[in-house]
Design a protein around this nucleic acid. Structure first.
Lengths: 338, 338
DNA sequence: TGCTGGCACTCGCACGCGCAGAGTGCCAGG
DNA sequence: CCTGGCACTCTGCGCGTGCGAGTGCCAGCA
């Protein structure tokens, strides 16, 4: 177990390194922090911290920088979440309240997060699978062609074309629409399949094929998880990453374009609170030199989607976590209101 | 007027520079291209070309690189559009045909363009203002709350919440829906305002306020041009830009995040064919070292939106123009089918 | 036992230098 | 009008050097 002072030394190293982006030495540490001991003592502590794998030196006789393990300890034990100030909170709220629809909410959230944290922001659209159905609409576009529109309680709209096996009358369509809505409105997505299972039986034999087709398209839409869209922003902040550019930035940009990767990344965060994944803790290799700070947000008590930021492992964790948490909270409020 | 050979020299310079990314000298030129003259002659031609502003040297006694003006001449006079090969065309078509809905079409288009050109791809969603209304749906969510859903012929769906001044019965709602659709279905957006102008008069006095509100929301949605969304991809290709990274790449990333800028950029391209904006021809300063190749695409004869790529001025213009044109053509086909 | 000051040592980095190579402009001759 | 030759000008690169920051270790002290 590390002594109290050694933890303080680690904390100081992390803070200084985050601030200066340069390896920090024993002398500078004692000057900038009142540790009450001499550089020599700090050197001994540093040697110990290095033995334990919390810090490392880029090359012999340079200062130390924190390792992923060091950041992990810092986040878990040495630093809290820095709350937003009141003016900041007001600004967040004001900015988000100007949104006109769901797309706009997400777009504003991304921009806000990117600005606040000066990092890359990722916001997942409110997920289908955890929401409830507000309305299902069926439109006849041609005798044997129906458009299915699904509206969720989070304001999201999904549409699908359905090619019917047989022509489908307007009356039947209205009938199906009414029955469908009376069954599934305000129900959770997960419950829908069992609720509509026997629906075809209520129809004339000739229409059953079409009804089944429509229903299966609906179910498909509900579970279609690769449709979990997300929006990213603030990629220009990547340029603040480091000096050894192309090598660092490229894999990150590539990872960011792989929606699958990002969704998995956000999905991993299961805690109720803010989740932090540091460096190699991220499964994707392209993100091994980045940290991901994410959190769930939702319109009620329950989280319907995730949002977060991607930045260098050398980031201001308390501040970033505070911003991410605050934004998530206010987005939740906005969604609940609309 | 430049002699034929000087134009050939310019063409050779552009081609070599695009290939090697390095200033090209007179000797290398004669070796790689059979111009039939000696390096000394080429030097004279180069001096002339430099006087005219088509090429420049980064520093005395280095090779030449084309200027924006040089690229412009190259694009306009010296190079055609390189058509895609048959296998490439098949691949494009196959890839796009797998799309399940409009979002997917756009997403696939972006990925495709980015891959083909190895540059940043930008695809505008089919524009509202040039399309026709397929259907307007009204859903009662609460006594004084209506959701308006607008479906376009390109498969795009827009929704808006409407807070009504007074409660609105289901019968009235159904009435409004029917009247509305009979008037505007399959009409162009531009024609809608005059078509619904007198609609409130057909309703009871108590409902007129609500009807007006709904209609004005509909009109708002129709003209809301900042809602012209777009999708970008292939930003990782920016890392291939140059060696002097941060300075080049940063403003580009910033510009790409400003949808307004991009929309204006694509909007500028008015030609029926492929439009190329080179370097400083782009109004936005962040894009002064990039070229934009764009083209309209559409589901009929008419263009409903634009797509294009953003890359370094040093790009393979014929190939890029060919790819952009081919992709636009096939996206148009896909949209027409769905 | 733990902290401190002192000291020798290590290394990376910035700086200055010189050299080779590529490329040019110009000129005289065909 | 083209060509070969020649002198000139740069940039980039490799190399050696000195500097400074930082470390590790050791002996002394509370």
């Amino acid at each position: 177990m590390l002594s109290e002072r050694r933890l303080q030394v680690l904390r100081a190293i992390v803070q200084d390194y985050v601030g200066t982006e340069e390896p920090v030495g024993s002398k500078a540490l004692t000057e900038r922090h009142s540790l009450g001991v001499s550089p020599a003592t700090v050197r001994n502590d540093m040697a110990a911290l290095e033995d334990e794998g919390y810090i490392a030196q880029p090359h012999t006789s340079a200062g130390r920088i924190p390792t992923d393990k060091g950041y992990r300890l810092f986040v878990d034990k040495l630093a809290g979440v820095k709350p937003m100030t009141a003016p900041e909170r007001r600004a967040i709220q004001n900015f988000l309240e100007g949104a006109v629809d769901l797309d706009d909410v997400v777009a504003r959230t991304v921009r806000l997060l990117a600005q606040l944290t000066r990092q890359v922001a990722v916001v997942q659209y409110p997920s289908l699978t955890r929401s409830t159905v507000r309305h299902v609409e069926l439109l006849s576009l041609a005798p044997a062609r129906v458009m299915l529109v699904l509206i969720t309680d989070t304001g999201r709209v999904e549409q699908r074309m359905v090619d019917c096996p047989a022509p489908f009358g307007d009356a039947s369509l209205a009938d199906l629409r009414a029955r469908l809505n009376s069954r599934v409105a305000n129900r959770r997505f997960a419950d829908v399949p069992s609720l509509v299972e026997d629906l075809p039986e209520a129809f004339e034999h000739e229409d059953r094929g079409t009804v089944s087709t429509v229903l299966s398209t609906l179910l498909e839409t509900l579970v279609e998880e690769n449709e979990e869209r997300l929006m990213i922003g603030g990629t220009a902040n990547l340029t603040r990453f480091g000096h050894d550019f192309p090598l660092t930035i490229r894999p990150v940009l590539e990872a960011l374009e792989e929606q699958v990767v990002l969704l998995k990344l956000l999905g991993e965060a299961q805690d109720p609170g803010v989740t932090v994944r540091i460096g190699h803790e991220n499964a994707h290799v392209g993100l091994n030199s980045t940290s991901v700070v994410s959190v769930g947000y939702g319109s009620g008590g329950e989280a319907v989607a995730k949002l977060g930021v991607v930045g260098p492992t050398r980031m201001d964790y308390p501040g970033t976590m505070g911003a991410v948490r605050a934004v998530a909270r206010y987005v939740g409020q906005i969604l609940a209101e609309s």
